[in-house]
Design a protein around this nucleic acid. Structure first.
Lengths: 109, 109
DNA sequence: ATTTTATATCGCAATATTACGATTATAATA
DNA sequence: TATTATAATCGTAATATTGCGATATAAAAT
């Protein structure tokens, strides 16, 4: 096996898990934090900021882009990455309703 | 390689990614939703609810338990699972500050 | 046109994840 | 005590992820 059974779950469950999976890596969290704190966007500074090889950073950026979380614009030789607002909002609302669906229980097991 | 370089990241980045990773699977999202909607807790009903083998469900439950997201109590032959409020709150606040750190930009690339 | 700079992709090795059947452990029941 | 019900663990196969060196691509500068 080794293959997630996507068919048996709802689109929402699959979508949320895909988005979370894209973020659920310390390097990608660090990349996103950098992109956010650099306000507008950055490029290959990430390779220096984090201690990872250029190929590795590029691969992580690709995954974030595939998930629709970031967006890259070519600026001459460099590529400028920034957050994709729509996906970010989507993730926020999906997570909000998921995490918010749990109300501290009166009693449990 | 194939081994995440945990050392080069902050504890927060590692913690958040660990928690998200534990949740970032449609089966585990479904399991958590079941646990939440069953209000108190459930046990092996999950095997019937979702269309996965008993061993698979048990493994997912173990991962959620290892991450500290759920808690299991033995009740005779059955085991009752429920949300671990502290971890849930932690995740909520970590995600809140992470997702909230991005403010829709005036301009980007 | 050649060189330089920045980024993407390829190919690979190590490790992790996913799913499941089979088996084991444990507690309740007969 | 033997049986039954429930859940955990073992072992295994298939696939995915992580990280990197090497190479390719593309735009800018010389």
């Amino acid at each position: 096996m080794g293959l997630t059974k996507t068919e048996i779950f709802t689109p929402e469950q699959n979508e949320l898990s895909t988005l979370m999976k894209a973020i659920a890596h310390p390097a990608r969290i660090a990349i996103l934090q950098q992109i956010i704190s650099a306000n507008a966007c950055i490029c290959g500074d990430l390779v220096e900021e984090l201690g990872l090889a250029q190929a590795t950073i590029s691969q992580h950026l690709k995954e974030l882009k595939n998930a629709g979380i970031i967006q890259g614009t070519i600026e001459g030789v460099k590529v400028c990455y920034c957050i994709e607002p729509k996906t970010w909002e989507l993730l926020k609302s999906l997570l909000d309703s998921f995490l918010g669906s749990y109300k501290n229980p009166a009693s449990c097991c």
